[in-house]
Amino acid sequence: MIPDAEKLFSASTEWKSIRVNTLKIGRDELLERLSEKFEVREMPWYENGFFIKGDITKSLEYYLGYYHVQEAGSMLPPLVMLPDKNDCIIDICAAPGSKTTQMAMMMENEGIIFANDVNSKRLRALAHNIQKCGVVNCIILNHDGRFLWKKGIRGDKILLDAPCTASGKIIKNKNMTWSYGRVIRMSKLQKRLIESASKCLIDGGTLVYSTCSLEPEENEEVIDYAIKNLNMEAEKIELVGIKTRRGIKRWGDKEYEGAEKAIRIWPQDNLTEGFFICKLRKY
């Protein structure tokens, strides 16, 4: 299933990725400051992303919240969503808040983000990151995402970065354990979450679904479910500077709708974590 797998297992992980927090500092100013202390490479697919070699959590700039340590692949779902200053966005599984703070930054601290997470322990990290990034347009909620639609909030755009088996993190953790039973359990949960997300979304609104998992059951199968049952259609995604591959159309005896418009980021292609992203519109 994994193309060019040998590259994956020999990949170096000494480069860490960060995102500039433009709510606190300009991109060029931070680049200049970091270049004096670290080896820095610009990220080809995102002007506010950098790869850095060194201990990135021990610098003055980190302390000040001038940048946020964020996996390079995880910067992509907000780039697919393109949040706007006037949007009301719901981030259904928001903790620890990397994508939430990125969206707040892209919205220049205007509009509204409902950042929800069911796990009350993870909310502390979410709140910490939101505060540290200087975000003022976020409301942190603690609801079960499966029932969020019952609470009466509606969004123009929704990010569902669903809980997953995280097999795309294999580039960082080559000793991870895997079970098919867990994949199936996750797939069921993801379908419940996308159903709730679709009910929270206004007609014509955009839903970005993502996971850091490589399994079709957690990705294309969930999109297929949304298209067939939830009045949603997949939209083409355009990202520049990163190698992406199309979703998997056939898996075993199953054929998935919408897969051709979804994208897969394979870890070995860009030396990021693996990611699956699909953009859906409700009609």
Partner: peptide, 12 residues
């Protein structure tokens, strides 16, 4: 609306 939700934190 926020008063009706289980709100952990709001703003900065």
């Amino acid at each position: 609306l926020c008063k009706k939700l289980r709100c952990y934190a709001m703003g900065m």
